[in-house]
Amino acid sequence: MNTIIFRTVAPLIVGTMLVFAVYICLRGHNEPGGGFIGGLIAASAIAVLGMSWGRDAARRALRFDPLTIAAAGVVLAGSSGLLSLFTGNAFMTSIWLYLEMGGAEVPLSTPLFFDIGVFMVVLGSISAIGLGLEIDDGEGL
């Protein structure tokens, strides 16, 4: 599958998909989307990269070991829930913070970090499996 055309177009596709994935993840609280779907899209992007440029390129693009990303996601999600303990509330009580940034209001919240954690877990886990399955550089498909 690693034809010239595919290899040339792939980075474009991958980039768009990744940006879209982040967008989907962030808007999830109010419109269709969320960390899970975002993570799946990002994982697909990594899969496309793996198919076109090979497993090693995909690994390099991720920078971290996919399992590390997944583990960090679990830690992030868990610790976002721990924050509420400091305010004297039960575990995972959400905390909301509205920041003024250049006229726009940016809501920050612990569920957001939780969702980012979910995103990382899904991205990391699926990439780990996918990249683990691909046999050699670009010869998987």
Partner: peptide, 23 residues
């Protein structure tokens, strides 16, 4: 929960502990 996407709000807030277990 400050969110209008009920599905997502359930996942990350109402039933966040379940999601934590799932991930």
């Amino acid at each position: 929960a400050h969110g209008s996407n009920i599905v997502n709000v359930i996942l990350v807030d109402y039933r966040g502990l379940d999601t934590l277990g799932e991930i």
